[in-house]
């Protein structure tokens, strides 16, 4: 569909939704610079909450743990997701392929309390049977996040593989390249933008996850979302405003940057398609 201009009704609905989406976030950012301890009363401009935040050891160490888990689980989920995407998009039908496809989509929509609880019970049983994993912590959280993230990664990679022109791979095979070589020299470079965006997606999902983490974390491992949650439960807290502001800014920069790169890649793809 391509229209020429946005209608009046369209402009109205867009501006309403954008203010609905952004006003709460802007207020949140504004009050992170509030001098008053009362979050809802403006007491002048101050950067004190950022100082408090950076000196808060609990926050700093929780952030470190979250970052570590997010890097590890996004890397693994991208590997698994590419494999799963290949299976679903490129391999012919095999027995129980639909079960596989079903298990891929389910974690995406399944309420996280369900996924979290069931995985926890698995680990408890495993510990009783094999004594492993000995305790809940980074490893168990990592497994949970990988399972959640690989579903998203698979969906992104799979749809890219499905729309990719397969004759390019066939041409490589025709010119003497073996399947493994085709995958690394042809398929991977072509779907690289999709891989990058799914990596970003997996990273943000993992670093943001609270519910699955809550079930799978042990006493020694508190991630940033868990820390925020425990503080927010007690009420409004200007330090959290400061933390939220940093999160929002980081994500905005990351997403806009990634989007630019993707738009460029997309443009090239479109131009190629138009030229042929």
């Amino acid at each position: 569909m391509n229209g020429k201009n946005i209608s009046g009704f369209g402009k109205l609905s867009l501006s309403l939704v954008f203010s609905f989406l952004y006003v709460p976030i802007l207020i949140l950012i504004a009050y992170s610079f509030n001098a008053s301890k009362l979050v809802t009363v403006w007491g002048g401009f101050s950067k004190q909450w950022y100082t408090v935040l950076f000196n808060d050891d609990a926050v700093v160490s929780a952030f470190g743990l979250s970052l570590q888990i997010a890097l590890l689980s996004s890397a693994m989920s991208v590997v698994l997701g590419i494999l799963a995407g290949l299976v679903l998009a490129r391999f012919g039908p095999f027995q129980s392929k639909s079960l596989f496809a079903g298990m891929i989509t389910a974690p995406m929509v399944m309420p996280e309390v369900i996924t979290g609880l069931s995985m926890l019970l698995l680990f408890v049983e495993m510990q009783q049977w094999f004594g492993f994993p000995a305790e809940r912590g980074v490893l168990t959280i990592w497994v949970g996040h990988v399972t959640l993230c690989m579903a998203y990664v698979t969906v992104v990679i799979r749809s890219r593989l499905v729309e990719m022109d397969r004759s390019v791979e066939e041409a490589a095979m025709d010119l003497g390249a073996r399947p493994l070589k085709i995958f690394f020299q042809i398929t991977l470079p072509i779907i690289a933008p999709a891989i990058a965006s799914s990596l970003l997606l997996a990273f943000t999902l993992s670093i943001d996850d609270l519910v699955i983490t809550a079930f799978l974390s042990g006493p020694g491992s508190t991630t940033l979302p868990q820390l925020i949650f425990s503080r927010v439960r007690l009420g409004l807290n200007p330090e959290i405003n400061a933390l939220a502001t940093i999160t929002v800014l980081a994500v905005t920069v990351l997403v806009i940057g990634a989007n630019r790169v993707m738009v460029k890649a997309e443009l090239r793809r479109v131009r190629l398609a138009a030229a042929t």
Partner: peptide, 14 residues
Amino acid sequence: PINMMFQSYALFPH
């Protein structure tokens, strides 16, 4: 020892 020219040309875009 056979090579093919594909209908869509299938040139490697990268």
